Deep mutational scan, measured.
Amino acid sequence: ENVVSAPMPGKVLRVLVRVGDRVRVGQGLLVLEAMKMENEIPSPRDGVVKRILVKEGEIVDTGQPLIELG
């Protein structure tokens, strides 16, 4: 699984990683606000951040690609 998608609609509050960062399974990639709750979106696997597909403040839909892992 190379693309991390939004599990719910919401607003991207914070991106916690940068392109080139090594991440571990379960590590927070970004914080999504949904229904006034902050939800940290975890990495599904170990890898390297290849691309960040959203910006802070952006509104996303369920299933929208957020981050690509390499």
Rank of each mutant, 00 (worst) to 15 (best):
Val17Cys: 14
Gly26Cys: 14
Val4Leu: 05
Pro65Val: 10
Ala34Met: 04
Val23Ser: 05
Ser43Gln: 05
Asp21Phe: 14
Pro65Ser: 13
Val23Lys: 05
Ser5Met: 03
Leu53Glu: 07
Val25Ala: 11
Ile67His: 03
Leu29Tyr: 13
Val49Asp: 15
Met8Ser: 03
Leu66Phe: 13
Val15Phe: 04
Glu68Ser: 15
Gly63Leu: 07
Glu1Val: 15
Val15Asn: 13
Gly57Tyr: 03
Gln64Phe: 04
Ile67Met: 04
Val54Lys: 07
Val4Asp: 12
Arg14Gly: 13
Pro42Tyr: 03
Asn2Gln: 11
Ala34Tyr: 13
Arg22Ser: 06
Thr62Ile: 08
Ser5Asp: 12
Val25Met: 00
Ile52Val: 00
Pro65Trp: 08
Thr62Leu: 05
Pro44Arg: 05
Val12Cys: 14
Leu32Trp: 03
Glu40Asp: 01
Asp21Gln: 09
Val19Asp: 10
Pro9Arg: 07
Ser43His: 09
Ile67Val: 08
Leu29His: 13
Glu40Asn: 00
Glu58Asn: 10
Val31Trp: 08
Leu32Pro: 15
Arg14Met: 04
Leu16Pro: 02
Pro42Cys: 14
Val49Glu: 15
Leu32Ile: 12
Arg22Val: 08
Thr62Gln: 06
Val15Gly: 05
Lys11Leu: 10
Met8Glu: 03
Pro44Asp: 00
Leu29Gln: 07
Leu66Asp: 15
Gly28Lys: 05
Ile52Met: 02
Glu33Val: 10
Leu66Lys: 15
Arg51Ser: 01
Thr62Trp: 01
Val19Lys: 10
Leu66Ser: 01
Lys11Met: 09
Gly47Pro: 15
Arg51Asn: 04
Arg24Glu: 10
Glu38His: 01
Asp61Asn: 11
Glu40Gly: 11
Pro9Ile: 11
Ile59Trp: 07
Ala34Ser: 08
Pro7Ser: 05
Asn2Met: 03
Ile67Cys: 15
Ile67Pro: 15
Gln27Asp: 01
Gly28Glu: 13
Leu29Arg: 15
Glu33Leu: 08
Val60His: 03
Met8Lys: 06
Gly57Leu: 03
Pro9Met: 11
Val60Thr: 05
Ile59Thr: 12
Glu58Ile: 01
Ser5Asn: 03
Glu58Trp: 00
Arg22Gln: 11
Leu66Ala: 09
Gln27Phe: 10
Leu32Gln: 12
Arg45Asn: 00
Pro9Asp: 10
Ala6Val: 03
Ile67Asp: 15
Ala6Ile: 00
Leu53Asp: 08
Ile41Met: 07
Val25Pro: 08
Ile52Gly: 09
Lys50Val: 11
Met8Val: 02
Lys11Trp: 00
Glu56Asn: 13
Leu16Glu: 13
Lys55Trp: 05
Ser43Pro: 05
Glu56Thr: 02
Asp46Cys: 14
Val15Arg: 07
Val3Arg: 14
Met35Asn: 01
Val25Thr: 10
Leu29Ser: 06
Leu69Tyr: 07
Val60Cys: 15
Gly28Leu: 03
Met35Lys: 13
Glu33Trp: 06
Asp61Glu: 01
Met37Glu: 06
Gly10Ser: 11
Pro44Gly: 07
Val17Phe: 06
Met37His: 08
Pro42Arg: 06
Ile52Cys: 14
Ser5Phe: 09
Met8Cys: 15
Glu56Ser: 12
Ala34Thr: 11
Ser43Tyr: 11
Gln64Arg: 13
Val60Gly: 11
Arg18Leu: 09
Glu38Lys: 03
Met37Tyr: 06
Val15His: 12
Arg24Pro: 07
Asn39Ser: 01
Leu29Gly: 00
Val4Gly: 06
Ile52His: 08
Val23Gly: 12
Lys50Tyr: 04
Leu16Gly: 07
Val4Lys: 10
Gln27Arg: 12
Glu68Asn: 15
Arg14Thr: 00
Val48Ala: 05
Glu68Met: 15
Leu32Val: 08
Met35Val: 11
Gly26Ile: 03
Thr62His: 08
Asp46Gln: 03
Leu66Gly: 05
Gly20Trp: 13
Glu68Pro: 15
Met8Asp: 07
Val3His: 06
Thr62Met: 09
Glu1Trp: 15
Val12Asp: 15
Leu66Trp: 12
Thr62Ala: 13
Ala34Val: 01
Pro7Asn: 12
Glu33Arg: 05
